[in-house]
């Protein structure tokens, strides 16, 4: 299993650092099997809550610019009871790590959904405290709540717990620290960025909910920046997420401090993208004679002392 792209997060080994991000293709076991066959390193399910939820009406996913998407799915999901057989089926048909993303109305419900996911076979839990167009958004904006929710889920399960953070605040560092203090085994950064798209002729918001979450190419610099800011302040691994569409983007996240990355919107361009990205990384590592991608983790911080801090003025 050890190879130049393999990595480990809280005892879970990934053959490569590409993980399916929550909310994309993560509802049908067949989709996850297909991505696994296409070479993905791990997968995350759609966020699962305590009961069947239809989310927001369409239009709920649109592409607003080349490779950039706006969605207000609104945490639609079948509910944990209906999803248990799906988790079991995914585990039966694939042998890559499965992360189940969970949410709920309060810390106990998060914990309950997480526990049920663990029993069904999840390898790790990702806590969604950051969906920007649902009730849970407020949790991820508060360090106190993030810690409390993380603690509660940690208490309930014996598998690693990842916390997915929102970029929709001025300073992400206190939230990342709060997740770590709450016992998180890894941080996932970032969830989608709040955005809005309006029809040009009428001025009408296009998504049924109006404001949605921006994903894809447009948010990559925000994601890379968040990982870069968090990295010096936590000891736990970071999984970078947001706007990855090519192998160079993966490297950026690794340089910023990520151990692994999540991919989502790029699958609009087909699962072939997985191999394209892996091939690019292999070639790069070979060319630079690097035995494992992890050697590059956090490399951007080597330059911290060289960055200009104060602007210059005339005179």
């Amino acid at each position: 299993m050890l190879n130049e792209l393999s990595c480990e997060i809280s005892g879970i080994e990934f053959e490569n650092p590409l993980i399916l991000a929550s909310g994309i293709l993560g509802v049908a076991p067949s989709s996850i099997v297909r991505l696994s066959n296409a070479g993905i390193g791990g997968t995350t399910t759609k966020s699962i809550g305590p009961r069947t939820r239809f989310g927001f009406s369409n239009p709920s996913i649109i592409e607003i610019d080349d490779g950039s998407f706006l969605n207000s799915v609104g945490l639609a999901n079948p509910g944990i009871e209906a999803f248990i057989p799906e988790i079991k089926e995914i585990k039966k048909k694939t042998n890559i790590p499965l992360i189940v993303s969970v949410f709920g109305d309060d810390p106990h419900i998060y914990a309950e959904v997480a526990k049920k996911s663990e029993l069904a076979g999840a390898d790790a839990i990702e806590i969604n405290v950051s969906c920007p167009h649902a009730e849970v958004a407020s949790i991820g904006l508060s360090a106190e709540l993030t810690k409390k929710f993380t603690e509660q889920v940690k208490k309930a399960v014996n598998i690693p717990v990842f916390v997915k953070l929102t970029p929709n605040l001025a300073n992400i560092i206190p939230i990342a620290k709060a997740a770590e203090n709450g016992g998180a085994d890894a941080i996932v950064a970032i969830n989608t960025v709040r955005g809005l798209s309006l029809d040009i002729e009428t001025g009408r918001p296009i998504l049924s909910h109006g404001i949605g979450g921006l994903s894809g190419k447009a948010i990559r610099p925000i994601g890379v920046r968040c990982v870069y800011e968090i990295y010096p302040h936590v000891k736990i691994p970071i999984i970078g997420c947001g706007g990855i569409s090519k192998w160079q983007d993966v490297l950026e996240y690794i340089y910023a401090g990520a151990t692994a990355v999540q991919l989502g919107s790029i699958f609009s361009r087909g699962e072939e993208k997985i191999n394209e990205i892996l091939d690019g990384l292999h070639i790069f590592l070979k060319k630079h004679n690097i035995s494992n991608l992890q050697e590059l983790r956090g490399k951007s911080h080597d330059f911290d002392d060289e960055l200009e801090v104060k602007p210059k003025f005339q005179n």
Partner: peptide, 17 residues
Amino acid sequence: RCGFGICGLCALDPTGL
């Protein structure tokens, strides 16, 4: 939801088409 391959609602078992 999307029509372009990311929402996953229209996946068919067992191939994921």
